[in-house]
Design a protein around this nucleic acid. Structure first.
Length: 671
RNA sequence: GCUCCCGUAGCUCAGUUGGAUAGAGCGUUCGCCUCCUAAGCGAAAGGUCGCAGGUUCAAAUCCCGCCGGGAGCACCA
């Protein structure tokens, strides 16, 4: 029996007993972890609730402690239970039998459900993340999106679901058009010349996406003083959308190179994709037309006859009240007959959920070093028979998009649920998160001049248009360099290749943890000092803790773990003695924390909150560091104590390693 | 104007479906490497949980009203 099963049984028993003894039917009862180990392993504050319910039902006033005493005996009969105490005003505190619990630990897999992720029968869900406009390099804000999405994908997989990861490519948007305008009208380059430029940049060790970053900002400035240039946007945008012309060919190249860059950047952070859906294909394959027909058929949208929305197809959104400035209705088709972004998004969301009745064609986009493939959508049926896996049709779709998009996401969700009420609103999840902004100091460090007013602001929003932001590759490179310096200090004897590899793992751990430790609706005000810190609550702290744990087992004989397992199974009484000694509570608390991994991963999944897992990894690391500091396993002479310590250290390192892997953080050999 | 988010230690943040003495990291002060890695460990100082009401045996958490900060509400994408 594992911990969560035990908890479940205890809960059931409490509910059953409450019904039998007092005739009260409890739906769900709270179980919590007591604030201190001395207070037990699990607490039920259920007696308070019962006292209230009894009073309501019979008018009889009962003391919560008395009620708790009644429930106590019912729980004590369980196998793994050492004792049950009534504490405080009426808490029911449960103490597990430590020795018998420990004997079950060595056989437990750290994340048994992890294996199910390859099960073809498990539920399939889609997670869309990254979706950077392919007109420039990715910055730290995009990285938050990708790390959030990638980690959430890992959490879902650890919970046994099949997950398809999609990175949406908006290749026909204005941002791309802006950079295209920059190339054609500002830089006055042809496609052939751009290709040449690209090669030249490569030779100079510069990158195309960085060049576009600067060009995009430059175009933004040009727009401010050149109205004519700005007027070209609509024309260029139209050509790009239409396809099959010189401008769109140029755009295709710009998009391709930027997408390649973004994928390379993300791979540095261990982030990969299954599919790159392209907006142009949604247009060319007329996804919207199909969705539009369905919406008209069902009557969820209507043609506005009069008023300022006359001639538009609109969908009512009841969560928004209308005003003079803003209508309560959302326009999906403009009076000129073209579809809005939100309209397209509804059609696309339907495809993701397998509700549209249309599909893309696919082509191989890229193969990662280990053979894993990324596919992209296309509009044309490929000549050779496609050997791509089936894409889309998720039971549930998670869109990782920042909170500023909450309103359009709500409209999409609403629209889809109206078309397919059987799937409802819960099929579409907007995994929203707050933006990453810059502290005024960080903005100045990047060379931006701030006004007095700006300096007083709590944060400065990043802006691709202004070229203001911390580029992802720059930050990763800086973290790697700092880590390498430290690794060289500590492990001068290691071959350089190893040092670089270690530094890379450390840098990824630092960055991923940094962006995961904040809950989703906290605005991250980026500060270089904090982001580059290698001490305190960091990914490095967690990695270091795991590395130390592993170093214990490097020092031990290979047979020591087996011997310890046997000892723990055979010497139950002596093991109990160890737990009853003065170190008992401390080592036990580490063990129970380690055993809570599975529960924590599940919690992170249901709460849609990766930060829960990050906090867990940090707390587990902290607890292990304390344990490591207090006990010398290798030198321990008492065989039983040594065995207990070994089993606990092993449980802790397995749980920690799994937790970190679920966050996409590796544990290096040495650091 | 309307909707949503935030306000917890000097700073940055956690705080489970309401629960026991409100926690962590950084910073400050003071200790700890003859010992499995000091990227570590320990100790001290630091709080009117924005303000004011309400519900409850119990409120940082739920409700109402204020105050302060942010985002969104396009025939833009």
């Amino acid at each position: 029996m594992n911990l969560s099963q035990l908890q479940h049984s205890l809960r059931e028993k409490v509910i059953e007993t409450a019904n039998a003894s007092f005739g009260i039917e409890l739906e769900q009862i709270a179980a919590e972890v007591p604030p201190k180990t001395e207070l037990g392993d699990l607490a039920f504050p259920v007696a308070f609730e019962l006292a209230k319910r009894i009073k309501q039902a019979t008018g009889e006033k009962k003391n919560p402690r008395e009620i708790a005493e009644n429930l106590k005996s019912a729980l004590e009969s369980f196998d793994f239970i050492e004792k049950v105490e009534v504490a405080g005003a009426g808490y029911l505190n449960v103490f597990y039998n430590r020795a018998s619990f420990l004997s079950g630990v060595p056989n437990a897999e750290p994340l048994p459900k992890l294996k199910l992720s390859r099960d073809e029968n498990s539920v399939k869900v889609c997670v869309e993340h990254t979706s950077v406009n392919p007109n420039k390099a990715a910055h730290i804000g995009h990285i938050r999106n990708s790390i959030m999405g990638d980690t959430f994908m890992r959490i879902l997989r650890a919970n046994g679901q099949r997950v398809e990861t999609q990175n949406y490519i908006d290749n026909t948007g204005v941002q791309v058009a802006d950079v295209v305008i920059g190339f054609i009208y500002v830089e006055k380059l042809t496609l052939a010349e751009i290709v040449e430029l690209d090669k030249k940049l490569l030779a100079e060790n510069k990158t195309f996406d960085y060049y576009c970053w600067d060009l995009y900002a430059k175009v933004g400035q040009e727009y401010q003083r050149d109205e004519e240039l700005k007027a070209k946007r609509a024309e260029v945008l139209h050509l790009v959308e239409e396809g099959g012309n010189e401008t769109s060919e140029l755009a295709d190249y710009v998009v391709l190179r930027n997408v390649q860059s973004i994928i390379a950047t993300m791979e540095r952070l261990s982030i990969r994709y299954d599919l790159l859906p392209r907006e142009s294909d949604i247009l060319h394959l007329h996804f919207w037309k199909k969705a539009f027909e369905k919406m008209k058929e069902i009557g969820v949208i209507h043609l506005e006859k009069e008023g300022k929305n006359a001639g538009c197809w609109v969908m009512p959104v009841d969560s928004h009240t209308g005003s003079d400035e803003h209508e309560a209705d959302k326009i999906l088709v403009r009076s000129n007959g073209t579809v809005t972004y939100t309209g397209k998004d509804i059609a696309y969301q339907m495809w993701k959920l397998g509700l549209l009745g249309l599909d893309f064609y696919y082509e191989l986009f890229h193969t990662y070093g280990d053979g894993k493939e990324v596919w992209a959508t296309t509009s044309e049926k490929p000549e050779k028979a496609a050997r791509n896996p089936a894409f889309g049709s998720g039971e549930k779709v998670y869109n990782v998009i920042d909170s500023r998009q909450s309103y359009p996401q709500e409209v999409v969700k609403k629209g889809v649920s109206l078309i397919a009420p059987e799937r409802g609103e819960q099929a579409s999840v907007h995994l929203s998160y707050e933006m990453v902004a810059l502290s005024p100091a960080a903005a100045e460090e990047l060379g931006f001049e701030l006004t007095e007013e700006d300096r007083k602001r709590p944060f400065i929003e990043m802006s691709g248009r202004k070229g203001l932001g911390v580029k992802a590759d720059d930050l990763i490179t800086r973290l790697e360099a700092n880590a390498l310096e430290e690794v060289k200090k500590r492990h001068a004897d290691l071959p350089e290749e190893e040092q670089i590899k270690t530094a890379h793992i450390i840098a990824v751990g630092a960055l991923r943890y940094f962006l995961l430790k904040f809950t989703r609706n906290t605005i991250i005000v980026f500060d270089f000092k904090e982001a580059l810190s290698f001490e305190g609550e960091t990914g490095i702290f967690c990695q270091y803790s795991a590395v130390r744990a592993n170093s214990i087992f490097r020092k031990l004989q290979e047979t020591d773990l087996q011997t310890a397992t046997k000892t723990v199974l055979d010497e139950t009484e002596k093991v109990a003695g160890v737990f009853n000694s003065e170190i008992g509570n401390e080592i036990w608390s580490l063990l129970t924390l380690a055993s809570r991994l599975e529960e924590t991963v599940a919690q992170a999944a249901t709460a849609n909150e990766p930060a829960i897992l990050a906090k867990y990894a940090f707390n587990l690391s902290k607890a292990f560091n304390l344990f490591y500091h207090n006990h010398r396993i290798v030198a321990e002479e008492n065989a039983v104590k040594r065995a207990v310590l070994i089993i606990i250290a092993d449980a802790a390192r397995r749980a920690l390693t799994s937790a970190l892997n679920t966050m996409g953080i590796e544990v290096p050999e040495r650091m």
